[in-house]
Design a protein around this nucleic acid. Structure first.
Lengths: 206, 206
DNA sequence: AAGGATTTTATTCGGTTGACAAGCGAAAAT
DNA sequence: ATTTTCGCTTGTCAACCGAATAAAATCCTT
């Protein structure tokens, strides 16, 4: 039976279609939540951006809250996979610098991350608690072990180091339209990203 | 005529009352806009926090948009007066460090500022344009002239320096509840503010 | 071709939004 | 003392919100 079982382009076309739709909705949710915050984003607008309708969101995700969690899971999933790929290098100082550059490049590729942090970190509600315990604390622990390995950063200064690094590395990308208007520099350009990565790396490790 | 013209406690009691009410509303608006963004903040909640009613906001300010502008004017008015009080010091390097510490202290006292920037800087709408041209550009020009005076920062790096400084100095205060939960450090404490000011100052000018 | 999962369309519900208009009452002007 | 002014309160409005539902349409699977 040479040409048997034709017709169906793929055995799991259904599951793939389902997954593709979910991903489209999540992608639209990430953009919209990052732009307007949880309250400001409506499921109707998310559906419109995803090219579907509001009813489908209720079908795939139980609620707006669950959709938000799926969006955050996706973003921090990207961060986790990027961060775990550490190029255990030669000079420990240069390795640390490269880690910082890597973080800045990630912040440039995903400016939504800082927006989510600023949007949710200011209110002490259930969403913030979930975000911290599920995603931020593991990253914070990673950073703590790394700084111990390399430079001797006093334990008490770790919070200051963490937020200074995150803020310095990602703000310019999170307010890209403003930066363009204010300075004329387009921070989404590859050249600007590398310049900022080098600038922040040299700032922290001269 | 010793006790003449009594009765009226003050000649302009009416105007004073009006101004006091406006200020109460603006203060409530700053808190609410900073917490929930422009869309997430409702005029009813702002009125409730100000101890009045929603109709009064429409009376004093024509629209929610005008109220937002009044709130931003107030915040950046604080920044301007703080920034202009530069203590032309002795060692130019130490003077610059003190300027950075001063900026961090301001960011701690007014964490709303970064939230306004992140909230509005991400969308290229009319509010962002107004914010940049009216308030941010003058501060950016100030910074440019100061860095020229002191250290020889290449012109092309000024945008990177600006956003790195703003981000490093203020993020920790803008996500204070998150910081408390994540690290146990309360960034609103006087001691933590001074530590962060010194940390950022030494980061930029070792 | 039948069957079932995905998707669309439509509707309902309780609630919130910003803007507006009419009227109240005390201060101010005459 | 009467009238006018004006800061303020109250109630109303259409538009939109999120969530839930139901039924029909579409498409993959078998």
């Amino acid at each position: 039976m040479p040409a048997a079982k034709a017709a169906t382009a793929a055995p799991h076309a259904r599951a793939r279609q389902r997954e593709a739709t979910r991903e489209r909705i999540v992608a639209a949710a990430i953009d919209t939540f990052a732009e307007k915050g949880f309250r400001g984003a409506s499921t109707r607008e998310i559906a419109r951006r995803a090219g579907t309708n509001q009813g489908l969101i209720t079908y795939h995700f139980r609620s707006k809250d669950a959709l938000w969690r799926a969006a955050v899971d996706t973003i921090f999933g990207w961060l986790e996979s990027e961060w775990s790929a550490s190029p255990s290098g030669l000079d420990p100082r240069e390795t640390a610098r490269e880690a910082i550059r890597s973080w800045v490049r990630f912040a440039a590729a995903h400016p939504e991350l800082l927006r989510f942090m600023v949007n949710e970190g200011r209110e002490s509600d259930e969403r913030m608690r979930w975000l911290v315990e599920t995603h931020i604390r593991p990253r914070y622990a990673d950073l703590a072990s790394r700084t111990n390995e390399i430079a001797g950063l006093p334990e008490a200064l770790l919070p200051h180091f963490f937020y200074a690094l995150v803020g310095a590395g990602s703000l310019i990308f999170s307010v890209a339209p403003e930066c363009r208007r204010l300075t004329g520099l387009d921070p989404t350009r590859e050249e600007a990203i590398e310049t900022h990565a080098e600038f922040v790396a040299r700032l922290i490790l001269p």
